[in-house]
Every structure is written in structure tokens, then in C-alpha cells.
Amino acid sequence: MKLLEVFENQPPLAMVGCGILRKEVNFLIEKNGWNVHTHFLDSALHNYLNRLSVELNRALDEREELGEKTVVFYGGCHPLMENYLEKHHTCRTHGQNCIVMLIGYELFMTELEKGAYFLLEDWALIWEPMITACFGMNMTVVREIFHSSHKYLLALRTPCNSDFVEAAKTAARFVDLPLQWMDVGLEHLESVLADAIQRRLEDRQ
């Protein structure tokens, strides 16, 4: 059964999730004519588990109080993620994290094993305040943290991105790592979203 056929005679689905790929998600929803509206949360919440827990559960509560059926756009970004999904009788997109959802597990692991830290546009634009809020203002410490497990920043550029070259360069200088680029399509993300949406619509809960 095609995904659009599953939408027939059903109200819109509410997708609650991380805003890191909001442009790409919204583009794919519009492209495919999916009857889905989105509620995006701050893309830096993965650094603050308590805030992620509170804001995700609050957003799901709000949507449920409106009588909406939800699906979650998150990876395993919280140790209790599966508990939250069960509590709210919903499901999430398959994938360890947003990078895996975007480029696939094999490519993710290949670059990770080479020492990549994956950089997306949204993070590049808020890089310094995001990093210092998480790790503090001591640049020696910040760079030691990054250098201990990463050899380069890999900026992923999608068809939905604006020009964030300068922001990416600034981010790389900030942590004193070389910058590399990779242009990526949306095919894998599209399949991940379609799978999650279909699973949720076919769930009668």
C-alpha cells in the first residue's frame, strides 16, 4: 500500500522532533504531499538530557490534548527515549541519531571511524554559544575534548541548506580541527520518514 493511501480518511499526523533537519523534513513533507504537520524542538537539546525529557514530553502531551496522533523525529538521543514512546503510545524514526537518518549507518560509521565530527548547518550557525554552554569557556579544555576523539569536522551540505561556509570555517577554527565537506542527498532521510509515518498511521492506538 502506498503511503498516501494510508493517509486517506485520517486526520493530519503531528511529527514532534529535533529541529536540526527542519528544512529537510519540511521539504520532504511538502514534496510527497504527506498530511503531516511539524513541531520542532531546539536542536541543542541533546546536550541537556533533563531539558530534552521535559520538552519532548510536554510537546507530546500538548499534541495529544488536541486529539492529534503523533510520531517522533528523534534518534536514541535520551536513555529513556523508548519509555517516552511507550508512555505516549507512539513511535520514532529508525536510526541512532540524525546523521544516521540523513546519510545512512554505513557511511556514518565509515566517517566516524576516520575521526569525523559531523557538522550540520543549524549547529554551525550557533556553534560557539552551543559549545561553550555545554563545555565552558576554557578553550584549552574545549579543544582537548574534541581532539581526544575527532580528527576533523565534516560539514554535511544538503539541497536545503543556505550558504554556511563561513560559519563552518569559524566552527572548525574554534575547535582547531580541519574542515571537510560532503554533499548529501535526501533519499535516505526520505525513506526513514516514510517508514516512521507509515508505521504510525497503521498503528490503531
Rank of each mutant, 00 (worst) to 15 (best):
E121K: 08
E65D: 08
V175P: 01
G75I: 07
E202N: 14
L66A: 12
L125K: 15
P79R: 07
L177T: 08
C77N: 08
A167Q: 13
E8W: 09
S53G: 03
R199Q: 11
L4A: 11
P12Q: 09
G67I: 09
G76T: 08
L21V: 07
L189D: 08
N50C: 07
E144Y: 02
K151C: 08
F73P: 00
N161E: 07
I145H: 13
E55F: 12
E82D: 15
N57R: 14
A172N: 03
L21R: 02
D122N: 13
R204S: 15
I20N: 02
L45F: 13
I29K: 05
M182F: 00
A133I: 03
A116S: 13
F108Q: 01
T93H: 01
K114N: 11
C160M: 07
D183R: 03
R157F: 09
E202K: 15
R199F: 04
H147I: 05
M137L: 12
L49E: 12
I126G: 09
H94L: 10
N57S: 10
H147M: 10
D42S: 05
T110D: 14
I131N: 05
E24S: 04
G104Q: 02
N32I: 03
M15K: 01
I99F: 07
E8D: 11
D122Y: 08
I197R: 11
R173L: 08
V192T: 10
C134W: 14
D183S: 06
N161I: 05
F7V: 06
F108N: 06
F27T: 13
G17S: 06
Y48D: 15
L45P: 07
L60T: 04
E187G: 02
M1Y: 14
A116G: 02
R92P: 00
N9L: 04
Y105P: 00
G136I: 12
E62D: 13
C160K: 04
G75W: 07
L28T: 11
D195E: 13
T158C: 09
F146E: 08
E121T: 04
Q205M: 07
L189P: 02
L80D: 07
M137R: 09
L177G: 04
K2T: 11
T170C: 06
S162A: 14
N57E: 14
E106K: 14
S162V: 09
V25C: 10
E65I: 00
L179S: 03
T140A: 06
C77F: 05
P11F: 06
L28C: 09
C18V: 10
F7N: 02
I126N: 15
L66R: 12
E64H: 08
D183T: 05
A172E: 03
Y48T: 13
F108T: 03
T140D: 11
L80S: 06
F135D: 01
L102P: 02
A155M: 05
F73A: 01
E24K: 01
A194S: 12
H150N: 15
Y84D: 00
I126S: 15
L153H: 02
L56R: 05
F7S: 08
E111Q: 12
L119T: 02
N35E: 13
P129I: 10
N35R: 14
A133E: 14
D176E: 13
L13A: 04
F7P: 03
